[in-house]
Each structure stands twice: as structure tokens, then as C-alpha cells.
Design a binder for these strands. Structure first.
Lengths: 347, 347
DNA sequence: TTGTACGCGTTATCAT
DNA sequence: ATGATAACGCGTACAA
């Protein structure tokens, strides 16, 4: 039976290009000990002579030896890596969600590899193609349909952000848009508004929960509304909101209040309205959704449906944990974050 | 010579707790083929009968089989993971840097695992303790000294953000604060200001590049300045800036212009000044540093020394690449990002 | 088309 | 205190 020591003398005469990384075996040879001893020294276990330990460490230093995380992971179980897919790091909303994910992951001793999909379906799939190989679970925002996601997931557990159980077969953490809009529209109606528009961020043909909740509340209050009161903002940014508001003022100049898909869009609406000569909130009330701290800095400060974004991220990690434990995901109210109306100057 | 097939029948009768994950071997057994065939099916190489392939994939599905990323990484080289350590995800500056890192990393096919150190020295070290085992290189913001970093790095390459070569023995990507402040102070002086204060973010005892550049420029213009004109904002946030400005107005009520360590602090300064009854920019000019898009939304819009934050991130990744290639890091102007004065309403 | 026999770099177990 | 040997799970020449 060959000792594998003897079998191992490959490409030692290679013109070391990017220089093959030293292995435990190289260190062992240089220090004149066995691999096992090197392992003991490096991971400073006991049961090793201080002298040899020092000799080994010196050799390791010399060779710039670092244990392979792959070999190590193979034999020591327990290193968990989660993938996080975010649509747009420039939108302050998502870093805050990410902070929640990182926080919860760290507490469990997990690592998080982050991808920015830039709200691009193709990039979402690419992210999954990679993460399905390199992560033990994925959480994030996705526009692709369930089937497509599943195809690129290769069996890796997925937790969707801002999706209700009705809208996906994957585990999810949602936002209770209905509960939010109920407070929001009630506030506007209470203030006397009857002609309320919306700057939506979803696609015209696939109304999201926010638009549906908006329309439902408007109708519940007996106000008239049709598609002409909802304009699309594909951009999800201040600029997108400005453009959208300009169009809304064009098609529905009689509007007295607008609800923005998110705070960025709402802030854009404020700016566009002002530029069009309307004062906020006197001539036009503006309400946002998200509760970015940014909203407190603009003038007037933004009234908004505030969301606990960190909690969203934390919940997502909890869902992942349940999936991994085979417990079945959280459902119902436990997997939802409820917005809370924060009234400031703009409405 | 034993076929290792036969040697492998361990703990098959375990009361599978968190259920041992299926291996390629399990799939092979269930499908009645060799592991090699499973491998071919899963990685869809050619040279496999479509029928058996389907049978294998079915078995894999049944067992919820996913190849171990460790075993795979062991045999296929090339999967690079970089660690990114950020002080505060809530400060819009850092997500933008992160975006640059992610972008550049993705182009190279690398992954990035992110840590939020919350500007905490202890957490920085903890991050390194983990990342030194799980990442092939680390880039980020660190307050710990070189020696400490090295100790927790275990030989993993490190690229420091916002440090000049003079200030560290590690590879670094810096910001040319001097070039920025030269423009900034010149602008203020040109506007007639002679009593200029600073809201600094660094520690009183260890002046950072921004403060040093600030003092140098002030002196270069022959203006008088001493420590009483510089107040500390440990917070690096709007609130921190508000508090700092209040203190500055207290100790130096004659101030006519302030330079903020970053845009957040500068915005806080504007708010505090206004609250104290001073108009911006008429009674007090305010200049920021960073060029956050947030600065365009406040009123008046913030004059600032704008930085290409994505570029900062991209450069950091490039430094990592050079380190890995053994090329020695970029130095001098190539590893620096230069601020650019953007004049808006506040100064 | 399918299977055999290693090797990847590390740690754990059991001797010595 | 140190070393030999066997896993860990997967990919891959090479043989069949």
C-alpha cells in the first residue's frame, strides 16, 4: 500500500506562473513533520511541542501558507453562506434591508454574498446561476416568475422579499400593503382630498400589491378612480418620480394628492409639482412609502408609510433558517411587515 | 484493491436529524449507476445516454441532491471570494462604494461577502477573523492599526480604503483630500469668507487627511485658525452634524462658513444653523464632502467636494487583483480618487 | 456510453 | 508529542 507521501511530487518544476499556493503538505515537508502536525500547529490545538510548533509556523510563514477553505469546509461542516440579491444599491431602501440580513446572518454565524441585479431579469438569472452553486440559500428581490427562478435555482432554498404567499410558491417575506394604504388613504380623505393619484413603480400590466391596495382603498371610500389616475414610474428614483408627476399633472391636472410607490418617487413628485407651480402640501399633498430617513431632510418633510426595513431583512433570514431546518416557512402575520403612517409636512 | 464503492456505507441508519445532505454517491446508488455518470448528468456533459441521464436527474431531484461547493471548489480551481468590510450601511456613501466593488468583482467572476463593522474596532477584528478563513482577499474600511489587522489577517491580502500609502503598509486606495480642499477653501475664500470652521469626523487626537488638508489650506490663504474652529462629530450622520454645528456656533459665533467632514454632517450643519436663526448660505455657507445625491434634494442644495465612489470601489478590486497576481499594488495617482468641487446653493 | 481509480487539501481517529 | 491512515464529496483521465 503506497503511502501517499510518495505519490505526491507533481509539477514541482513548473515555471510557477501565478505561483501555486502552498499546501499543508508543502509546509510539512519544509518543517520536516507530518501534515497532521502542521494542522495541529496552525489550528493551535494542544498536544504539540512548543518548539516544533514554532518551527512549523515559521515554515508556514515562509511559504505564505493558508489553509484551503474548500478542503476545510469539506471536512468541517457548518459553514453556511447565504446569497442576497438586491435590485438597486443606490436606493437607500435596500441597504437597510441588507443591514437587517447581515445582522441576522451574523448572529447565526452565516456569511452573506451580495449581488446587485439592477432590476434586470437577465442579471437576476445570472445571479442565481452563480449563487445556486456557491450559496446554501438565497434571499432577495426577484422579478422573474417562479418557474424561471426554480430552473436557475437548482434546488437551493429561496426566500422572496416583498411577496405574499399567494403570489409565489417559494417562502417569502411580505409587506402588508393593504394595512398601510388603509391608514394612508384614510389620512388623505380625512384631510379632504377626493382626487388622489398614484405614481406606481410596478409594470402597468402586472399591478403590484401597492397599486391594488391603493385602488381598493380609493373605492372603499367611494371615490372614483380609473387607470388614468395611475401613472407608471419604471425608474423607482427621484428622477422617475419627477417624470411621472409631470405626466400625471398633464393628464389629471385636477389632482390634489398623490401617493408614491416609494419615498424616492414621492420626493420626485414634490419637486415636479413645485416646478409646475404647485405648493406642497397646500396645492398638492404627497405621500410616500418606505419611510427613508431621507424623507425627513426634504422640505416639506415627507409624510410616508414607514416600514421597518431591517426587520424585513431579519425575517428573511429567519425564513431561511426554517427552510434549512425543514420546519416549513413562517406564514401569515409573522412573515409580514406592516407599514405605519408617519405624518410630516407633505400631506 | 477495494473499489471505494464498497467501503462507503456509513451511518445509513441514522435517525436523520437535520437530514444529512445527499451526496453524489447516494444519487448514483439510487439511479443504479456510477458516480461518474451522475457527474456527467448533473453537469450536463455529453457522452451520456439521454435515458440514463433523465433517470439520474430524477434520482437527484428525489434526494434533493446538490453538489457540495466545497468538494467542487477543491477540484475545480478558480472560485474567488473577496470580503468587503463597510463601517455603516446606513450612510449612503458606503453602498455606493460597495456597488463599485460588486461591479468590478462580478466582472472578474468573483463573489463578495459583505460585513458591516458599524465603525467598531472589535467588530472589525471579528470580521477579519471570519473573512481571513473564508475569503481570498479583503477590502474595506478599518480603524485598527496595521499590526492588529495583520494579526487577524493570517496572511490574507488586504486592501485598505481611504488610506494613503504613507499611512499604511498594506495596499490602499486613497482620496486626494488635499486636492479637494484646495478647490473647496479657494471657493469659500473667493466668496469672501475669512472665518471658516470645520465639523470633523475623525478623532480629535488623530487628525485625518481631511482635517489636515483643511488646516493647511486655511493657513495657505493666510487665515487664522486654531483647534477651536474644529469641532468633532463622532457620529458621521445628520444628527452628528447638527450637534457639532450647535457646538461650533456656541464657541465660534463669528463663523461665516463651515466645511463638513462629509455630506451628512454638512446637511446636519445646515439644519442646526437654520434652527439657530441663520440663513444658508447668506449668514452661513456650508460645504460638504462626498457628493451624495442626497445633497441635491435638500434646500438649499449642498455644495460639496464630489467623489466618484464607485470608482473607489472599482480601484480597490483592481488592487486586490494585482496583489493576487503578485504584481505589487498600484501606487501614486492611479490609486487615488480626486474630489471635484460641485457648487450648488449652500455655499 | 459507462465505470475505475485517483487526487484535490484538510481534519479526525487511532496508533505509537 | 507525533505520525499513519482514512475519510470528506466531487471531477477526470483512462480503461472497458
Amino acid at each position: 500500500m503506497w503511502a501517499d507521501n510518495q505519490q505526491r511530487e507533481p509539477r514541482t518544476d513548473q515555471p510557477d506562473g501565478p505561483r501555486r499556493r502552498a499546501t499543508i503538505h508543502d509546509v510539512a515537508r519544509l518543517a520536516g513533520v507530518s501534515r497532521q502536525t502542521v494542522s495541529r500547529a496552525v489550528n493551535d490545538k494542544g498536544e504539540i511541542d512548543p518548539a516544533t510548533k514554532e518551527r512549523v509556523l515559521e515554515a508556514a510563514r515562509l511559504l505564505d501558507y493558508r489553509p484551503s477553505r474548500f478542503a476545510r469546509g469539506l471536512v468541517r461542516k457548518g459553514a453556511v453562506t447565504a446569497g442576497l440579491v438586491i435590485p438597486d444599491l443606490m436606493n437607500p431602501f435596500f441597504p437597510e434591508v441588507a443591514a437587517g440580513v447581515l445582522e441576522a446572518a451574523e448572529q447565526r454565524g452565516w456569511q452573506v454574498v451580495v449581488w446587485d441585479s439592477r432590476t434586470d431579469d437577465t442579471r437576476e438569472r445570472e445571479a442565481l446561476d452563480v449563487l445556486s452553486h456557491q450559496a446554501d440559500a438565497v434571499v432577495g428581490y426577484f422579478r422573474n416568475e417562479d418557474d424561471i427562478l426554480a430552473r436557475h435555482l437548482g434546488g437551493v432554498p429561496l426566500v422572496l422579499l416583498e411577496r405574499g404567499p399567494q403570489q409565489t410558491r417559494f417562502a417569502a417575506v411580505g409587506i402588508d400593503a393593504a394595512a398601510g394604504l388603509e391608514q394612508g388613504i384614510a389620512h388623505l380623505v380625512r384631510a379632504g382630498h377626493r382626487r388622489i393619484g398614484m405614481l406606481d413603480g410596478d409594470r402597468r400590466d402586472v399591478p403590484g400589491p401597492r397599486r391594488e391596495a391603493f385602488l381598493a382603498e380609493i373605492r372603499r371610500h367611494g371615490l372614483s378612480v380609473d387607470e388614468s389616475w395611475v401613472v407608471m414610474c419604471p425608474e423607482h428614483s427621484v428622477a422617475g418620480g419627477e417624470a411621472g408627476m409631470a405626466r400625471l399633472l398633464d393628464s389629471r391636472p385636477e389632482v390634489t394628492a398623490v401617493f408614491g410607490f416609494n419615498d424616492l418617487i414621492a420626493i420626485g413628485a414634490m419637486r415636479a409639482a413645485r416646478r409646475a407651480g404647485r405648493r406642497v402640501p397646500d396645492d398638492l399633498a404627497v405621500m410616500g412609502f418606505d419611510g427613508l430617513s431621507l424623507g425627513e431632510l426634504v422640505e416639506p418633510a415627507l409624510t410616508t408609510l414607514h416600514l421597518d426595513k431591517r426587520q424585513l431583512g431579519r425575517l428573511a433570514v429567519e425564513q431561511v433558517a426554517r427552510l434549512r431546518a425543514g420546519e416549513g416557512p413562517l406564514n401569515g402575520a409573522d412573515a409580514w411587515v406592516r407599514p405605519e403612517l408617519v405624518v410630516r409636512g407633505s400631506a
